[in-house]
């Protein structure tokens, strides 16, 4: 079942020009190192046995944030059929880090890939009632206001998704 959901997630991501990398907790750091283009900023990852590459600045200043090429964060969950990732905005800074860097690398545990929006809103209900802020992000930021579709309007120009299959 799970692999079906990840497969759905992967093809939905393709529609919005996002590449999905499948990895394990043990190999995640290597995958992230390959994806990373410096300067990079990030938030420590909450998955057991997974840590960020050393080059990632986890306590950036506002200036470093603006200058970052890569921003790595875990996401709360993903929505398979839309290819969306749910960015939780918490005091450690997932929201600014996923937003200001040119490339957002979104890391999600396979067990947190939800099938659809119905499951999403069932989960978001209690989260929001407990005060959480969540952004469902689908693909890079985009605008057509200047006469043609351009990615990277105010937010990231590209997004990568990394699924940790054993988490």
């Amino acid at each position: 079942m799970e692999s079906d959901v990840i497969g759905t997630f992967e093809s939905a991501l393709q529609e919005v020009d996002v590449r999905l990398e499948r990895t394990t907790a043990a190999d995640a750091r290597g995958v992230l190192t390959d994806l990373l283009e410096p300067p990079a900023v990030g938030v420590p990852l909450p998955f057991d046995g997974v840590s960020l590459p050393e080059a990632v600045e986890t306590e950036p200043t506002p200036d470093e944030l603006e200058a970052a090429t890569t921003g790595i964060t875990a996401v709360e969950f993903a929505v398979a059929d839309y290819g969306s990732v749910a960015i939780r905005s918490s005091p450690v800074g997932e929201e600014p880090i996923s937003l200001y860097a040119d490339v957002h690398v979104a890391v999600v545990a396979a067990s947190d890939v939800l099938p659809d929006m119905k499951a999403t809103f069932e989960r978001l209900g209690d989260d929001a009632r407990n005060g959480a802020d969540t952004v469902l992000a689908t693909g890079p930021s985009a605008t057509a206001d200047m006469g043609a579709l351009v990615t990277g309007a105010h937010g990231p120009k590209a997004v990568h998704a990394v699924v940790i299959e054993d988490r």
Binding site: P60, T61, Y82, S89, E94, A142
Partner: peptide
């Protein structure tokens, strides 16, 4: 569009660290 790039569900005041501080001091 199937979905717009961002659907934000915010329960403000939001929980992100302030960016309105000294540009050289970490968030």
């Amino acid at each position: 569009q199937d979905i717009t790039s961002y659907v934000s569900l915010l329960t403000p005041p939001v929980d992100a660290p302030s960016l309105d501080r000294d540009p050289d001091t970490p968030l």
